[in-house]
């Protein structure tokens, strides 16, 4: 895995852990809505934090396609590379 990919994963997992009411084990297979019980606004708020930490723009339709944390890491990676 490239340095950038692991940095992105770290930022995403760290930001999410801080946003959850209690600590949870997280993996690439974790379903953001079903497993973590976040509602649609909480997910958008969490992605906003990631946008700021990585200085990228993640359009809402891209968020709608994301199901697992692995999907999110891949989406963010693509956007970061394009930026």
């Amino acid at each position: 895995m490239s340095d950038q990919a692991s940095e992105i994963r770290e930022v995403i997992f760290g930001t999410l852990q801080a946003a959850l009411p209690q600590a949870r084990p997280l993996s690439d297979d974790t379903h953001i809505i079903e497993d973590l019980g976040l509602d649609s606004v909480a997910v958008m708020d969490f992605v906003m934090e990631i946008e700021d930490k990585l200085d990228i723009s993640v359009p809402l339709d891209k968020i709608a396609e994301v199901e697992t944390l692995g999907d999110l890491v891949a989406t963010v990676q693509r956007l970061k590379q394009a930026a």
Partner: peptide, 13 residues
């Protein structure tokens, strides 16, 4: 409304 169109949508604080 933002989902009915085809534009890219960004949220701000």
């Amino acid at each position: 409304a933002s989902r009915l169109g085809y534009a890219q949508v960004t949220r701000f604080r």
